[in-house]
Design a binder for these strands. Structure first.
Length: 234
DNA sequence: CCAGACGTTGTT
DNA sequence: GTCTGG
DNA sequence: CCAGACGTTGTT
DNA sequence: GTCTGG
C-alpha cells in the first residue's frame, strides 16, 4: 500500500514530466519540499482540463471523501483504493470513470511487516534513476454540509507487489510510466485498467531509512537519508 | 419500504 | 480497540 | 502510514 | 448517490 511518501517540487523537471500548462509551471514555485507526506496533507495532483486541453497542477486533500459522504472523517480510511476493484466500489467508481489524476512523488515509504521487537522498520522506495514519478490517483469533490466550502480530495491506487517489493509488503502503489499519463487521464480510454500494473522491479530501488520518519511531525531531509548497506535488491 | 453501508491494510 | 492529528 | 489520545472537575 | 439487508 502507500501511506507515506515524499515530494521535491522542481521547476526544471516537472513541466516536461507532466506536460504542465504555463500557469501550472508557475505554481510549482509556491510548493515546498515535503519529505514526509502524510494522509490528510494537501498534496499536488495533475489533472487533465478538457477546457484548456492542458495538464493542470492543483492541490487536493489526501484521503478521498466521496461526494455523497455525510462525514468528512471517512477520509482516513480512503487513502488507497485497490486498482482491481475501484471501478466497481461505490466509493470510487464515479471517480474511476470521470476523475482521474496523476500524483507526483519522488519516493514512498513502506514499513516491514512487524518483525516482533523494536520500532517498525521503514524503507524508502524510489526509481533507480532517482527521478520524479507519478502515482495513479482518483479525486472527488465533497460539499461540506456545515459550511459553504467544498473539498477536493484524492486517493492513491494500489496493486500487487512486484518481486522487489514482495520482500517488504504484498501491495504497492501504482506507478505510471510517463508515456501512459495521458492515457490514464483520458476518461474515454476504456482499457486503461491495463495500465494499473506493478512497476518494473528492475527500475526501482528499496533502501532502509531511520525510524525517524515514523513520526509524522518529522519533516526534513533526514527522513530520506538511507542507511548504509541496508538496501534490498531484486 | 427504511436503515445502513459505502474502505484498505494487517492481524487473528 | 478505535479514532484523530500530523 | 505511525503516534498519541482516549476524561472530568476545578484551579491557574 | 446507490446498493444490500432486513
Amino acid at each position: 500500500m502507500c501511506g507515506r511518501y515524499n515530494i521535491i517540487p522542481d521547476t526544471e523537471t516537472w513541466p516536461r514530466e507532466f506536460s504542465l500548462s504555463a500557469g501550472s509551471v508557475s505554481r510549482i514555485d509556491t510548493m515546498k519540499p515535503n519529505y514526509n507526506v502524510c494522509p490528510s496533507a494537501d498534496i499536488p495532483i495533475v489533472r487533465y482540463d478538457p477546457g484548456s486541453r492542458q495538464m493542470e497542477l492543483s492541490l487536493a486533500h489526501w484521503g478521498l471523501v466521496p461526494s455523497w459522504s455525510k462525514q468528512r472523517s471517512v477520509a482516513y480510511r480512503m487513502i488507497n483504493a485497490r486498482a482491481e476493484s475501484a471501478a466497481e466500489k461505490p466509493a470510487y467508481r464515479e471517480s474511476f470513470r470521470w476523475r482521474r489524476c496523476v500524483i507526483p512523488a519522488n519516493g514512498f515509504f513502506e514499513w516491514e511487516r512487524s518483525t516482533g521487537s523494536g520500532s517498525k522498520q521503514p524503507y524508502l522506495v524510489t526509481l533507480q534513476a532517482g527521478t520524479v514519478f507519478g502515482f495513479a490517483g482518483l479525486w472527488d469533490c465533497w460539499k461540506d454540509p456545515g459550511d459553504d466550502g467544498s473539498l477536493i480530495s484524492c486517493t492513491i491506487l494500489t496493486t500487487c507487489a512486484n518481486s522487489l517489493m514482495q520482500n517488504i509488503h504484498d501491495r504497492m502503489p501504482v506507478i505510471l510510466a510517463r508515456a501512459h499519463y495521458s492515457k490514464w487521464l483520458d476518461p474515454v480510454s476504456r482499457d486503461s485498467g491495463a495500465l494499473l500494473r506493478p512497476y518494473s522491479s528492475k527500475r526501482m530501488r528499496v533502501s532502509a531509512v531511520s525510524p525517524y520518519v515514523n513520526n509524522p511531525r518529522n519533516n526534513n531531509a533526514r527522513c530520506i537519508q538511507t542507511l548504509e548497506g541496508q538496501g534490498i535488491h531484486g
